[in-house]
Design a protein around this nucleic acid. Structure first.
Length: 266
DNA sequence: CATCAACCTGATCA
DNA sequence: ATGATCAGGTTGA
């Protein structure tokens, strides 16, 4: 499997990966996984289920074919993939992805990571050094520790989400049966989940690669490059129609192009 | 349906 | 150093 760890794990799609020297350390389910880049792919330590790891990295995604397909619709955006070869969209755990992105509201990537790690430390199973992402029950059983995580206005939404999932009002597994539109419709009904978070969960948690999440950065790029602006619905629909079933990958390429541009311009 | 302030906190900027 | 600003948005008016 071809993969570049830096753009894949460091771009903010998953929030539990930390880089120390040449090693990336993260938590997948109940494993503390360490990875480092090799010529051909990645070296892995600590993973008890390589099949799970392959699914996590969506090893079935043929990156060249995806870029080719995007290229038929928009060669320029496809060419942006050269800035981040080996970038893969991840397939994260549904519940973890939903709960994590609920916390992402109006916070920067650094802060999201801290909130997530804090919640894991406070409520998740101790794996030895790192903690697993807590189940809804873990959160409810340790609710008194949540205030120390300093989630701010997200705290109430976070606990309510845990309660509704634990009570069966929300079923993250059942949502995986739905198509993209059904998935988003279902997610948006959750308090604290708007269109942006729903799209992120649809793509990173449920594997709907046609989702085109529009954050402030993508909003600016799309306006600059295509002159498209306006409501969330309008811009994200533009992305899906323009780039097709791999719009999510196109979104990543655009995201990284903006990153490079903004770092070059003081 | 579009617009807009308020929202917790902390990292970043002036 | 210390205060303003803003951040992978959502909500409710």
């Amino acid at each position: 499997m071809d993969v570049s760890l830096d753009p894949t794990l460091g771009c903010g799609q998953a929030h539990r990966w930390r880089r120390t020297g040449e090693w990336w350390e993260g938590v997948i389910d109940n494993d503390i996984v360490r990875m480092r880049q090799t010529d051909y792919g990645a070296e892995v330590e600590g993973c008890s289920d390589m099949g799970r790891l392959m699914r996590y990295f969506r090893s079935e995604d043929d990156l060249d074919a995806i870029v080719r397909e995007i290229s038929e619709r928009d060669p320029y955006v496809a060419s942006l993939s050269e800035h981040c070869p080996g970038l893969r969209i991840l397939k994260q755990d549904e519940w973890e992805c939903l709960a994590t992105y609920l916390l992402a509201t109006n916070a920067n990537v650094a802060r999201i990571g801290k909130m997530v790690e804090s919640v894991c430390d406070a409520c998740g199973r101790d794996l030895g050094g790192r903690h697993a992402f807590p189940s809804p029950k873990d959160i409810l059983d340790n609710a008194e520790r949540i205030p120390s995580c300093r989630l701010g206005f997200r705290e109430g939404r976070f606990i309510e989400l845990a309660r509704r999932v634990e009570d069966g009002e929300i079923d993250p597994v059942a949502i995986s049966e739905l198509d993209y539109e059904g998935c988003v419709r279902e997610l948006i009904g959750i308090k604290g989940v708007g269109p942006k978070v729903a799209d992120c969960v649809a793509i990173f948690g449920y594997g709907h690669l046609e989702a085109f999440p529009v954050d402030v950065r993508i909003q600016k790029v799309v306006e600059e490059m295509y002159g498209v602006s306006g409501s969330y619905a309008k811009v994200s629909a533009f992305g899906r129609e323009r780039f097709g079933r791999y719009a999510g990958y196109a979104q990543e390429f655009l995201y990284h192009s903006k990153f490079i541009a903004s770092r070059r311009t003081p």
